[in-house]
Simulated scan of single mutants.
Amino acid sequence: MASHHHHHEHSGDKLVDEAGKVLAEAGEQWTAMREDVFRTLAEQERPASAYDIAELVGQKRGKRVAANSVYRILDLFVRTNLANRIESANAYLANTHPGCHHDCIFLICDDCGQADHFDDDSLTGALIEAGRKAGYSNVRPVVELRGLCRDCSS
């Protein structure tokens, strides 16, 4: 049985405000560009690539935004728990509970690209322990399950 965290899910301006607070608490500045990247990422229904985000932010700002800049910001967001990286798709999702640190297990639809997540502390804890027994430290599980979502499988 999965151990479930009780998250404080945020959306819209509340999510953006919470992300700004979390980044500031991490000793980082919440710049206009970082806010634009986060807001754009949070608006996406599916995982988005840095190139997708750069294009959308560029449209909003009325000038080209370099994907390299967006990659650096997204990497910062992943390090500070504001976003999750979907490794197999090289894409990102905004974390709707940025103050909560845990290891998500992602479910990714092979057809439409929808990504959902759930928490199972017993599973991710066992993976961390297996890594430690193998002599690794700072083990961070990245678990992705691929298949078809409810809509695509019906």
Rank of each mutant, 00 (worst) to 15 (best):
residue 97 H to L: 03
residue 103 D to I: 06
residue 57 V to L: 05
residue 55 E to F: 08
residue 142 V to D: 06
residue 74 L to I: 05
residue 77 F to K: 01
residue 32 A to V: 14
residue 118 F to P: 07
residue 100 C to D: 13
residue 72 R to D: 06
residue 144 E to T: 10
residue 6 H to Y: 07
residue 49 S to Q: 09
residue 46 R to D: 07
residue 35 E to D: 08
residue 53 I to K: 06
residue 113 G to V: 00
residue 37 V to M: 09
residue 4 H to A: 12
residue 130 A to S: 11
residue 32 A to P: 15
residue 21 K to T: 13
residue 42 A to E: 05
residue 80 T to Q: 04
residue 42 A to V: 11
residue 112 C to I: 03
residue 20 G to V: 12
residue 122 S to I: 07
residue 98 P to V: 00
residue 38 F to G: 13
residue 29 Q to K: 15
residue 99 G to F: 02
residue 20 G to Y: 08
residue 137 S to L: 10
residue 89 A to Y: 02
residue 39 R to V: 08
residue 43 E to A: 15
residue 131 G to Y: 00
residue 54 A to C: 06
residue 39 R to Y: 04
residue 94 A to M: 03
residue 111 D to G: 04
residue 81 N to L: 02
residue 75 D to A: 12
residue 9 E to F: 11
residue 28 E to S: 15
residue 114 Q to M: 09
residue 96 T to A: 13
residue 124 T to S: 10
residue 114 Q to N: 12
residue 31 T to Q: 08
residue 58 G to E: 00
residue 148 L to N: 09
residue 64 R to L: 06
residue 35 E to Q: 15
residue 109 C to S: 03
residue 80 T to Y: 01
residue 142 V to T: 10
residue 70 V to F: 03
residue 146 R to M: 09
residue 146 R to D: 13
residue 91 A to F: 00
residue 154 S to F: 01
residue 78 V to I: 12
residue 11 S to A: 13
residue 67 A to H: 09
residue 87 E to M: 09
residue 11 S to C: 07
residue 56 L to I: 06
residue 142 V to G: 04
residue 152 C to E: 07
residue 95 N to D: 10
residue 78 V to N: 05
residue 22 V to L: 09
residue 79 R to F: 01
residue 71 Y to V: 15
residue 66 A to K: 15
residue 112 C to Q: 01
residue 46 R to A: 10
residue 91 A to C: 03
residue 138 N to W: 06
residue 146 R to S: 14
residue 81 N to R: 09
residue 35 E to H: 11
residue 137 S to K: 15
residue 14 K to S: 14
residue 83 A to I: 10
residue 119 D to C: 13
residue 28 E to C: 13
residue 136 Y to R: 15
residue 78 V to M: 05
residue 94 A to F: 00
residue 120 D to L: 01
residue 64 R to Y: 04
residue 21 K to V: 14
residue 110 D to C: 04
residue 30 W to Q: 11
residue 107 L to C: 03
residue 95 N to Q: 06
residue 113 G to Q: 00
residue 109 C to A: 01
residue 103 D to V: 11
residue 51 Y to P: 07
residue 108 I to Y: 02
residue 71 Y to H: 15
residue 142 V to K: 15
residue 75 D to S: 14
residue 83 A to T: 10
residue 62 G to F: 03
residue 90 N to H: 09
residue 30 W to H: 12
residue 93 L to G: 01
residue 132 R to G: 03
residue 40 T to S: 11
residue 2 A to C: 07
residue 6 H to C: 08
